[in-house]
């Protein structure tokens, strides 16, 4: 990435307050953060440090109380609910700690879901979903429901669902939190590969340094502020 490229994400003085009056809680106290397109960022910090709040804002699921959030130059803090939904639909992919697949629904249908909302025709949906499942190595499992898949497989289906729309940014919230270390490394290697080959910007929240080590950039949060940023990690080399 050339330094002259504008960052895909820019936070300026972002604050977030939950509640009102004396019980109000200030989760973010003025966060400044730039994330370049194509970066692989790990967000770390103890619970209550504001990392989850930041991820919710970056995922356009929540709006800041104050400050600016520019995504591809667009002021997200000025968008309404539906406009943010459309932004998520078009540019973002989500991977959650709890996988969050639709129960009793086949892997293929789960992966198809975002395309459904984009209004893609059936045939095109099928093909794209199968291609995404192929990328995560689960092509032969397309008709299995989440209940019939292992945790690692479920997370890979979730990743397939996140990337089926070819998003600009993939947001992963503790993607390995529910997996054993072997599966975790598999998932991390896959994310690294994805970041390299398709240039997707990956933002990942984790509390495991082993996992954070896969990222290029590690952002440390503390007490609602960015404590420090470790840039220039060489992806993949920190694996034990």
């Amino acid at each position: 990435m050339a330094d002259s490229d504008p960052p895909i994400i820019r936070l300026r003085g972002v604050t977030k307050v939950y509640g009102e009056g004396p019980t109000a809680f200030q989760a973010l106290k003025g966060v400044d953060l730039d994330i370049a397109a194509g970066d692989f960022v790990a967000v770390m910090g103890p619970s209550g440090s504001g990392k989850s709040t930041t991820m919710n804002i970056l995922g356009c699921l929540d709006v800041p109380t104050g400050g600016q959030f520019l995504f591809k130059g667009v002021h997200v803090e000025r968008l309404d609910r539906d406009q943010r939904a459309l932004l998520r639909r078009k540019y973002l992919g989500f991977v959650f700690q709890g996988f969050n697949l639709l129960a009793r629904t086949s892997a293929l249908e789960n992966v198809e879901l975002p395309l459904l909302y984009r209004g893609d025709p059936r045939k095109q949906r099928r093909e794209a979903a199968m291609e995404a499942l192929d990328k995560v190595g689960l092509k032969d499992w397309w008709d299995h429901t989440p209940g019939e898949l292992s945790g690692g497989q479920q997370q890979r289906v979730a990743i397939a669902r996140a990337i089926v729309t070819n998003p600009d940014v993939l947001l992963a919230d503790e993607p390995t939190g529910n997996l054993d270390s072997e599966r975790s490394i598999e998932i991390m290697e896959f994310l690294t590969e994805l970041n390299k080959t398709s240039g997707i910007t990956v933002l990942m929240v984790t509390h495991e340094p082993d996992m954070a080590a896969f990222a290029h950039t590690i952002v440390h949060f503390k007490d609602g502020l960015v404590e420090r940023i470790e840039a220039g990690h060489k992806s993949g080399e920190a694996v034990a």
Binding site: R81, L86, R89, G93, L113, P114
Partner: peptide, 12 residues
Amino acid sequence: EIGIRLAIGAVA
């Protein structure tokens, strides 16, 4: 399920 749908970009 509704949360998932909203997160992946379903409008209200």
